[in-house]
């Protein structure tokens, strides 16, 4: 069950997957939950991966799925990538697909600035 925090003034929603491992076992459930948010007009998303220590190819697939669903009308950025997750992002070049920030505040600030 994901946890969300809304920053209404910029229409930004921060999402915490609340899982230690984003893998084949839970990636689809996570994606479907966030799809629900996207379909209810949330399209500026920060996925906070601070608590995620491991991500597999299904997890990557879920994140790219979010990006595709949001499409041109919004943005998906990440924050809090741990060493393991960063390594996976580097080997699959996802570091070139997603903007990522050290923490939530930096991510929200960066997204807010892009409104202007």
């Amino acid at each position: 069950m994901i946890k969300t925090q809304e920053h209404a003034e910029h229409g930004i929603c921060v999402i915490d997957p609340v899982v230690e491992r984003l893998t084949a076992a839970n990636a689809t459930g996570f994606k479907e939950e966030v799809f629900g948010l996207i379909d209810s007009k949330h399209d500026r998303l920060v996925i906070d991966l601070t608590g995620v220590s491991f991500i597999d190819s299904s997890g990557i697939g879920a994140l790219v799925g979010l990006l595709k669903r949001v499409g041109a009308r919004g943005e998906v950025v990440l924050c809090g990538l741990s060493g393991n997750v960063q390594q996976m992002f580097k080997i699959t070049r996802m570091d070139r697909v997603f903007s990522s920030y050290p923490g939530r505040d930096a991510a929200v600030a960066a997204l807010a600035e892009r409104v202007g």
Binding site: S57, I60, G61, V64, K90, I91, T92, R93, V97
Partner: peptide, 10 residues
């Protein structure tokens, strides 16, 4: 090698 995009993802 130092990585590369997966196939059929993008």
């Amino acid at each position: 090698g130092d990585g590369g995009f997966p196939v059929a993802l993008l």
